[in-house]
């Protein structure tokens, strides 16, 4: 097993939620919807193990699908730094 597939394999752990990369249009829509700037969003490192395989560029937005005991499923957004 190569190093990369190994690391992706780790992400099956129950602690890791689903990470998705938003497209440029989706990102702009999101910023407009919540009336925020990129600076105000929570951050995630570019070399974070959970998004390494997504090859996200700096400034793009990661959509995280979190499970919650109170709300079921909700979305959280982090900007790549």
């Amino acid at each position: 097993m190569t190093e990369k597939t190994k690391e992706v394999n780790f992400l099956k752990n129950h602690l890791v939620p689903k990470h998705e990369l938003l497209s440029y249009n989706e990102a702009q829509e999101l910023l407009k919807k919540f009336n925020v700037s990129l600076k105000q969003l929570p951050k995630i490192k570019q070399d974070d193990p959970a998004i390494k395989h997504l090859n996200a560029k700096r400034g793009s937005i990661i959509k995280i699908t979190r499970k919650s005991p109170t709300a079921g499923i909700y979305f959280y957004y982090r900007v790549v730094i």
Binding site: N9, F10, L11, K12, N13, H14, L15, V16, P17, H19, I44, K45, D48, P49, A50, I51, I64, R66, Y76, R78
Partner: peptide
């Protein structure tokens, strides 16, 4: 079993599984 294996070290989780996993660990 990768899915259920658990540690209580948040820095290790941050390094191996990412910041979101670390957040879940702190919560748990």
């Amino acid at each position: 079993d990768i899915k259920r294996t658990y540690t209580n070290d948040m820095y290790e989780v941050e390094a191996v599984l990412g910041i979101e996993a670390a957040r879940n660990l702190i919560l748990n």
